[in-house]
C-alpha cells in the first residue's frame, strides 16, 4: 500500500513524454524467460541418460532471440546518454535484430534506420515496414558484411543524427545473454546443464551464455555451430573464417566448432516442425543438428541449445519446406 501511495505522489513530476516511455517499458519487460523445450522424437537414437533442450526464443515479443540484445543495447545507450532525443538508432541487420530494434523503437518513440541486404526475405521487409522502420537496402552480392560497411559509413558521415548500435561490436549484446539467457538455463535445468550449443551470428548468444555458465560450472562444454563453407544457406549464421569478425567474438570460448551443412539444417527444420511441432527457422535447424551430433556422442548429460526464431519469416522459401 505504501508503494502505491508513493507512485501516485511522484507521478506529477514525470512529463507526459517520459510517462509514455515508462509505459513503453512494459513491452520490454516481456523479453526473456522463454520456455525450455525438450527434443523428444528427434532424439530417439540417443542414450536415455542424455537430455536435449532448446530455449524457445521465438516466444519473445519481437519474435526472436534478438529481443534480448536489442533491449540491452537500447537500455545501455539511453542510460549512458549516447542515444539522445531526436537521434535515430542505426544498425546493419540480417532481419531479426532490425525487427527487435523496430519493435522497441516504436514502444519507446525512437526512430530506427537499418542497413539490410536487398535480398532479405519479403517477410522481413514487410515486418520492418509494418513497424515503421526506415530500411536502407544494400548490395545483395556483398551480403551482411556489405550492410555492415554501409552502416559504418552512414554513422561516420552523420554522427549527430545516428546512434550506431553496432550489434557486432557492442558488449551490451553478449551481456544481455550473460544477464538473462544464461541464468534462465541454469534455473530451468536445475543446474544440471552440461553442454551448451549455439549457432554463431554475432556470437552474442554463445559468448554471453558461455561466460555465465562457465562461472556457474567451469566444466560446462561449449560448442559453436557454424556453416561448413563461406557460401551457404544458413540465414542468420556466419562463417567466421571468411566474414568480418565481430569484436565481441572470442574464438577461445568454444571447446569445439561444429560445421553444419545447409542441407542438414534444412532437413532438421522440416523434422522439428513435423515430428516435434517446433515450427522454427533455419538457424534453429542448424543448432539442432549440432546439438544432436554432440548428444549422440554422450553417455549422459544435459545438452541445451537456443532456437533463435520461428519459421514464419521463411515461408516464402519453397526449397526449405519442400512444399512445391
Amino acid at each position: 500500500m505504501t508503494s502505491k501511495v508513493n507512485t501516485i505522489t511522484t507521478k506529477p513530476t514525470v512529463s507526459a513524454h517520459q510517462e509514455s516511455e515508462v509505459e513503453g517499458m512494459a513491452l520490454l519487460k516481456a523479453v526473456g524467460n522463454t520456455p525450455l523445450l525438450p527434443l523428444r522424437r528427434v532424439t530417439k537414437n540417443i542414450s536415455p541418460d542424455v537430455k536435449v533442450y532448446a530455449k524457445a526464443e521465438w516466444f519473445n515479443p519481437g519474435g526472436s532471440v534478438k529481443d534480448r540484445p536489442a533491449f540491452n543495447i537500447i537500455r545501455s545507450a539511453l542510460y549512458e546518454c549516447r542515444l539522445l532525443p531526436g537521434m535515430r538508432l542505426l544498425d546493419s541487420t540480417s532481419g531479426n535484430m532490425g525487427i527487435a530494434y523496430a519493435t522497441f523503437g516504436a514502444a519507446l518513440d525512437i526512430n530506427v534506420t537499418l542497413a539490410m541486404p536487398e535480398n532479405a526475405s519479403p517477410e522481413r521487409v514487410s515486418i520492418l515496414r509494418a513497424l515503421g522502420a526506415e530500411v536502407v537496402f544494400t548490395d545483395p552480392l556483398e551480403g551482411s558484411d556489405g550492410a555492415i560497411l554501409v552502416a559504418r559509413q552512414m554513422a561516420k558521415e552523420q554522427p549527430d543524427l545516428y546512434f550506431y548500435a553496432n550489434q557486432y561490436d557492442n558488449p551490451a549484446n553478449w551481456q544481455a545473454h550473460y544477464n538473462s539467457t544464461g541464468p534462465e538455463i541454469v534455473e530451468q535445468t536445475q543446474g544440471a546443464v552440461t553442454h551448451f550449443v549455439a549457432g554463431l551470428g554475432t556470437s552474442g548468444t554463445l559468448t554471453g551464455v558461455s561466460r555465465y555458465l562457465r562461472e556457474y560450472n567451469p566444466e560446462v562444454e561449449i560448442v559453436a555451430a557454424q556453416p561448413d563453407a563461406a557460401f551457404h544457406g544458413l540465414e542468420g549464421l556466419k562463417h567466421m573464417p571468411t566474414a568480418i569478425q565481430p569484436a565481441i567474438y572470442d574464438p577461445k570460448i568454444p571447446d569445439r566448432i561444429a560445421e553444419v551443412t545447409t542441407e542438414a539444417a534444412h532437413e532438421m527444420v522440416r523434422k522439428l516442425a513435423r515430428q516435434e511441432g517446433y515450427f522454427v527457422g533455419i538457424s534453429s535447424g542448424a543448432a539442432a543438428v549440432a546439438a544432436l551430433q554432440l548428444a549422440a556422442e554422450l553417455e549422459s548429460g544435459v545438452v541445451v541449445t537456443a532456437f533463435p526464431d520461428a519459421g514464419y519469416k521463411y515461408l516464402s522459401d519453397d526449397a526449405l519446406w519442400e512444399t512445391r
Binding site: S92, T93, S94, G95, N96, M97, M116, P117, N119, A120, P140, L141, G143, S144, D145, Q167, Y168, L200, G201, T202, P227, F231, H232, G233, L234, E235, G236, L237, K238, H239, A243
Partner: peptide, 10 residues
C-alpha cells in the same frame, strides 16, 4: 545472372 548469397548473422 546474379548468384545471391544467403544473409549471414545478426
Amino acid at each position: 545472372l546474379r548468384i545471391i548469397p544467403s544473409i549471414a548473422g545478426g
